[in-house]
Design a protein around this nucleic acid. Sequence first.
DNA 1: TCGCAGGGTTAGAAAAGCTGGTGCTAGGAC
DNA 2: GTCCTAGCACCAGCTTTTCTAACCCTGCGA
Lengths: 204, 204
Amino acid sequence: MSHRIPSLNGLRAFEAAARHLSFTLAAAELGVTAGAVSQQVRKLETSLGISLFRRLPQGLLLTAAGEAYHPRISQAFEDLTAATEAVAPDINTRAFSLGLSADAVHLLPQPWPERRSDLRRYLRETQVTDDVALILDNALDAVVRRGPPQLSGLSALALSEDATTSGFHFVCRNGLLNCRQSQAIVEELSRLLAEPALSETEER
Amino acid sequence: MSHRIPSLNGLRAFEAAARHLSFTLAAAELGVTAGAVSQQVRKLETSLGISLFRRLPQGLLLTAAGEAYHPRISQAFEDLTAATEAVAPDINTRAFSLGLSADAVHLLPQPWPERRSDLRRYLRETQVTDDVALILDNALDAVVRRGPPQLSGLSALALSEDATTSGFHFVCRNGLLNCRQSQAIVEELSRLLAEPALSETEER
DNA sequence: TCGCAGGGTTAGAAAAGCTGGTGCTAGGAC
DNA sequence: GTCCTAGCACCAGCTTTTCTAACCCTGCGA
């Protein structure tokens, strides 16, 4: 009755890569580098003794085996996700606790986010800090600050396209970039930070 | 669409432990120590923020959450296994290539296993060697030799109960101890090695 | 013909995982 | 009561796995 499954992490990499048909996009989703995804997939193929992708200079294609494999793996992962959400629902429903660096607070119209009732669902509280280590301690869910985090285990998204290195970043635990909470908060912040002056005159 | 799943290895440990209601048995199945399973499960519980087992001095009990979680996780793993077997069937159907140490060959009635046609389904070929490293190189599926292997990544089963340390062992890759091939071969060898003299007179 | 985007490969660094020791508790045999 | 055993918890140190950050190569389009 033992389950002989080839490396679960390899399967996760395959699932994401097959969905995006790109190691680069899969890597972004998983919060690692493309090289890591490439390695995981290759190891999976080796252990199965078959190849799952055709690597073309322009990108990826699934082989027949990969084509057959992917939907079933994907479904199983969805089942795992659903089961997990059922027993530990807070992962998805709890509102985030957000850290804001002092200069980020400056750019936001005050009081924020108290006036945005639609955001309360995703945002429970904010505090002024740029210490991304608090995320790893479970004291915060995310932090907005200048510059990407220098800590592994964290993913970051640049809020303004033009300044990938020193501009504002939304930082959270790996794998939490795509959840509802993150997306709602990032969307709102991107809008505000893009035109800080405008947001002040929006008051009525 | 990203799947936020708490450590897949933790889930695997949980699945096995819940099935056996024992870390010790789960560890044996997974080919690791009980401490490793205990750590994996604890980490899983921490990341979910709930507890899955009630630990009693006499053993384990599932909590309500664990009770609800287990069948769904178990099912998903079975789906993964089934999908994997569908695209890479050899894992389960291919006959094993077996290494036998010289002293093991001595104890077996010759020619073996050529006379046992019922075993041919599980056993493709044998060669005389006790080098367990060949298993990790995919050159062999299993080895029978004196003493347990001193190499990680391998599991072993003592063929005679009385000599766990220096007696004959069936050695294979972690997680392959319970497959059909291993079980058929181990059963046959245990019988032969238990009464080597008898097996010689069985000829007709 | 260049720049760029996407993959591949690699060494070395970081993280995760495992082991094997110790300690604790409950139950059973004497 | 006192041993002994079975199970799980904890911990330090080690091994294995995984990731990163370089590099390279190929084909496309300006």
